[in-house]
Write a protein that binds this DNA or RNA. Structure first.
Lengths: 115, 115
DNA sequence: TTTTTATACCTCGAGCTTCTACATATTAGT
DNA sequence: ACTAATATGTAGAAGCTCGAGGTATAAAAA
């Protein structure tokens, strides 16, 4: 067991979804699988988080979707990035980087202050 | 201009607060100031986030507080970490590290897949 | 053949955090 | 006398995540 259970901080899921879709059209179910595989199970995406997130992103015109057949012959909704979505991905990725750099500074604080 | 405005993802504020307090007793107002200074303005902590967070952490017995005088002669609530709080800080810091490593893997994905 | 598992989509409601705005009080500066 | 900074606090709105449930098809196992 040792359930890792690393609940995603609010907002980061959108970034991860945009990133996966940026690599090529995929359907929702596959997005969740890739995130889990690439992150080695650290990032887990329940369907109750995944689908609402996809709909949000679609409503904001970051994503567009078409129904197509998967390799295994089932109908699925394939998402792709819009131009707006690509810009959003860049913005969110930059923002994320700024944030983790800032948090690194904070977590790296020692009593002396300097290092 | 170019207001940075980097809303903290849910959950990370607790970690940052615990870290600052771990360096020595401080009052709430000073915690917010240090976070902004050390992060060079990237992390901004509005009062409506700060005080509820402190109360949450106190209710969970991660923090304890005493009223004391500041250097400038005002009464303020000084927080310190409990033993439980120190453990929580370690756990959350480790969890945060796992998460950003995982997200790094995802954001680093290229079309090739491997690297 | 019947049942289970995996694929693939979806919604609802609870729970939690964050933030804007407001409210209070004291001290220092102009 | 007024403004800004210090210092704490609450209330309400808005947002995201997640568990639990529902629908449907196809493959694999029993």
């Amino acid at each position: 067991m040792t359930a890792p259970k690393s609940d995603l901080p609010q907002g980061t899921l959108d970034l991860l979804i945009l990133k996966v879709i940026a690599l090529g059209p995929v359907h929702g179910y596959a997005i969740a699988q890739r995130l889990e595989q690439v992150s080695r199970g650290v990032v887990q995406v329940p369907e109750g988080s995944l689908y609402p997130a996809l709909h949000r992103l679609e409503n904001r015109d970051f994503l567009a979707a078409d129904w197509k057949e998967t390799e295994t012959g089932r109908e699925a909704k394939f998402y792709r990035l819009t131009r707006k979505g690509r810009k959003q991905l860049e913005a969110e990725a930059a923002s994320w980087q700024r944030l983790i750099d800032a948090i690194s500074l904070i977590l790296g604080m020692a009593d002396g202050g300097a290092r």
